[in-house]
Computed example of a mutant assay.
Amino acid sequence: MTSVVSNDPLLRADLNGIATLTLNRPAQRNALSIGLMEAIIAEFDRIKEDAGVRVVVITGAGTCFCAGHDLKELRADPSRAHYEKTFALCSTMMQRIVALPQPVIAAVHGIATAAGCQLVATCDLAVAAEESHFATPGVNIGLFCSTPMVALTRAVSRKQAMEMLLTGEPIDAPTALRLGLVNRLAPTPQVMEEAVDLAVEIIAKSPLTLKLGKQAFYAQAELGLAAAYDYASQVMTENMMALDAQEGIDAFLAKRKPEWKGC
């Protein structure tokens, strides 16, 4: 979708609190090489400390979002150490998204396959082009999409995830929306616009509340019911003690717009 000419595997552009990260290997369908994954991790580490960034949008240059791992790079060094490094690096990258204080939105066009589908499933939100497709097709080449499975099974139902994993067959964008893999659909030319609109809607909220809420969302999901409620109650109490919660409630009662302080 982005057509900027650059040799960098990852591009970043900041505007009005939104950091847009563009996977920039269009000739390789934005395959996740070691260099690209390292660049993404490094950028997330910078964004984590950047109070000026409120939301992150991830998209891809060229005709697709991301085709997964770079298979040519994988096979160029058929050693166990190389494979372990590649998959561990990818897992680290995905976990950086979950740990990032800022919400992350995938803006998807073309295809998102294998680790590319994993990336969509890992992002907090996703906007997809109406013509886009998603798949975990590793089974077709003898390589089960085991790491993409981790994110996929946390985004859609187990049986739907299993069907995608066992058959390798792609699903279209309306199906991805119905299954909960993506949040919104848009015509291909308007995907980034829709993603930015979603980001702007989020930016209007308290940054502290968003940080607390995102962290709590993923933490409670790993707990049993009683432990989840105990944990969430503690988070609610902590949130209520924050100035932004007090300001938000007072503004609501006074029928005025809140002025967030981020604390």
Rank of each mutant, 00 (worst) to 15 (best):
S3N: 12
S6Q: 03
L10H: 08
L10P: 10
A13H: 12
N16K: 15
G17P: 03
L21A: 05
L23H: 08
N24E: 06
R25A: 09
Q28L: 08
R29G: 08
R46C: 01
K48D: 11
A51D: 14
R54S: 10
V57L: 15
V57K: 13
A61N: 01
G62A: 06
T63D: 01
A67N: 02
H69G: 12
A81W: 02
Y83M: 04
E84L: 04
E84Q: 05
E84S: 05
K85T: 02
F87D: 04
F87T: 07
A88S: 15
A99Q: 06
Q102T: 07
Q102R: 15
V104R: 13
T113P: 02
A115H: 14
G116F: 01
V127E: 00
A128Q: 12
A135I: 13
N140V: 11
I141Q: 06
L143A: 10
L143C: 12
L143M: 12
A155V: 09
R158C: 02
I171V: 11
A173C: 08
L177H: 09
G180N: 09
L181E: 02
V182T: 14
L185M: 07
P187I: 15
T188C: 05
P189T: 07
E194S: 15
A195C: 14
D197G: 00
V200C: 00
K205I: 10
S206H: 01
L208M: 05
T209A: 04
L212P: 09
K214V: 14
Q215P: 00
A216R: 07
F217W: 11
A219E: 15
A221V: 10
G224W: 00
A227Y: 00
A227R: 06
A228W: 07
D230I: 09
D230T: 12
A232R: 13
Q234E: 10
M240W: 10
Q246P: 06
L253E: 15
R256C: 15
W260D: 10
W260Y: 01
K261P: 01
